[in-house]
Design a protein around this nucleic acid. Sequence first.
DNA 1: AATGATTTGTTTAAAATTTGACAATCTGAA
DNA 2: TTCAGATTGTCAAATTTTAAACAAATCATT
Lengths: 212, 212
Amino acid sequence: MEEQRRISSAVINRLPRYHRHLGELIEMGVERISSGELSKRMHVTASQIRQDLNNFGGFGQQGYGYNVQYLYQEIGKILGLEKKYNMAIIGAGNLGRAIANYTNFEKSGFGVVGIFDINPELKGKTIRGVPVRHMDELDEFLKHEKIDIAAITVPKENALEVADRLLKLGVKAFWNFAHIDLNVPKDVIVENVHLSESLMRISYKLSSGEKK
Amino acid sequence: MEEQRRISSAVINRLPRYHRHLGELIEMGVERISSGELSKRMHVTASQIRQDLNNFGGFGQQGYGYNVQYLYQEIGKILGLEKKYNMAIIGAGNLGRAIANYTNFEKSGFGVVGIFDINPELKGKTIRGVPVRHMDELDEFLKHEKIDIAAITVPKENALEVADRLLKLGVKAFWNFAHIDLNVPKDVIVENVHLSESLMRISYKLSSGEKK
DNA sequence: AATGATTTGTTTAAAATTTGACAATCTGAA
DNA sequence: TTCAGATTGTCAAATTTTAAACAAATCATT
C-alpha cells in the first residue's frame, strides 16, 4: 500500500501561481522553460521551483527544462482543475453578485449553480441566467443539485448560522468571505478571503515603513 | 541608533486575526484573557500568541493575562489602524462596486475618495456619494487628492498599464485583484487578492482528499 | 501576610522550509 | 558519434518558524 506523503501547504499555496505563469507563457507561445528562467520571471528561487515540483514527480528533463504545456496540464491535474465543481453563492449582495458575474471561474470549471439570499425582493432576478432563490428554497434545491463549494457572502452576523445549515445539508467546502471564523468539522474545507485583514496588511506596511 | 528587527511576515499576517478576535471579545464584554484561553478560541498555540505579541513588546501581565481592550488598541496601532487612508478604486465593475459599497472599510479608516473607470457611460454615477470618474480625469484628480491605496479591479489585460500610470503618479500601495503580478519598485507595496488562486486551493483539497 | 495557582516573557529545542550544491543525464552542434 | 554546455532531481546545509519548557512575577484566597 502506497504511503502518501503530506504536501506542505506552503507548496500548495504556490501551485496556483505556477499554473498562472505557465498559462501566460503558453499564451506567449513559449514551449519550454527552465527552472532558472521561470525563477527570474516569478521572483522565486529556481531551487524552490524544482523542489516544489518534485513533490509530485519529475516533470522536467535534464539539459532541457520543462515543457510548458505539459507542466501546465500536470499542475492543473494536481490542483484538481480537470474536474467540474458546482458552486453556490449564499448572499446576493454586491460581493456575491460580483462573484456570480465573474465568468473566468466558470471557464476553470467552477460553475455557479445556485444563488441564494434572504431578501425576498431579490427573488426572480437572475445573474448570468442563474435565478436568485430565497434561502427557504435551499433544502429543496439540494435534493436535486449537488453543491461542491458554497461561497459565503453574507454579513458576518449571519455567516455562522448559514454555514451550519449548509453543513447539515452536506456541503463539504466553504469559500468564506465573511469576517468571522467558520466552525466546521475536520473533514470540511474552509478557504477564507478576509478582505479587511488584507487591507490591514497594507496599512501595517504603509505605517511601519516596511516595503515588500 | 536603534536597530529595528524585521518582523516576519508570518507574524504580520496573523495580527489582523488577533485583532478581529479581540474585537469580538470586546463585543462579548470580556475584559481580560490569557494566551491559553485565546489559544483555545483561535485554534493556535498559546506559545505562538505570546511569541507573536512579544515581537512588539510585553502587553500582558503574569498571573493576569492580557487586558482585551488594551491589547486590541495596541495591535490596532501596530497595524496602523489609528491613521486614515485614502483609497481609490480603479475599475467600477462588479468587484470594484462591491468594494466601494462595503462600509466596514470606511469604519476602519479606509475611505474611498475616488472611483475610476474607462467606460464613459459610467461617468456621472455615484457609489455611496462618490462619483465614478473617467480614467482620463486621474491626473487632474491627483493634483487635489492624495491616494494612499489604489484598489486595482480592472481586467488583467489592463492591470499592468493602469498600475504603471498610478505608479508614475506616486501611488505607493496597491490592492491588486487582477490575476496578474504587478511590476513595481521595491518601495511600493502590493497586496494581492487572487480569487482564482483561492478557488484552486479549494479544488486541490477537494480532489486530493486533504482536509483542513 | 503567606501561599498555592496562574500566566507571562523568554530561552531552548524541535520541526519545517528554503537555499545551495552537485552528480547524473540530456541537448544540440560540430 | 562525440562532447561541451545546460539543467534536472536530490541530498545536505542553513535558515526560519513553531512549539515546549520554565523562571519570574502576579493574582487571589485564606
